[in-house]
């Protein structure tokens, strides 16, 4: 469920990035890399778990599924927070700078 949540986040971010490209004012690319990297790593985790559990892997207990989904959402939220920090620090549109300085008349 964590893998699935992250893959959906990665796909959505990639579509948003493609729609806005080649401009990268919102730095959505950061989110794409982060979610795709995590998705690939969780895919490996899933393969190892499948090798251990076989068909049982596809029938998790509802409580485990809910917990994994909760983790997936938390991971997506953490990714968004990291992206927001990068966006505000790099400030590609100069919004933060404009808020800190006022033009002298």
């Amino acid at each position: 469920m964590t893998l699935l949540t992250t893959v959906f986040a990665a796909v959505i971010c990639t579509v948003i990035w493609y729609k806005g490209a080649p401009k990268s004012d919102m730095k959505v690319g950061v989110l794409c890399w982060m979610y795709w990297g995590a998705s690939l790593m969780w895919l490996v985790d899933a393969i190892f778990e499948y090798a251990e559990l076989h068909a049982e892997y596809f029938t998790p207990a509802p409580a485990d599924m809910l917990n994994d989904f909760y983790l997936g959402l938390s991971v997506v939220a953490l990714g968004l927070v990291i992206w927001l920090i990068i966006l505000l620090v790099k400030d590609p549109k100069g919004v933060v700078k404009a808020a800190l300085f006022r033009k002298k008349n």
């Binding site: 982060m34 979610y35 795709w36 990297g37 995590a38 998705s39 690939l40 790593m41 990291i82």
Partner: peptide, 8 residues
């Protein structure tokens, strides 16, 4: 990819 994935 590596930094993003390993941090999450």
């Amino acid at each position: 990819l590596l930094w993003g994935g390993s941090s999450l």
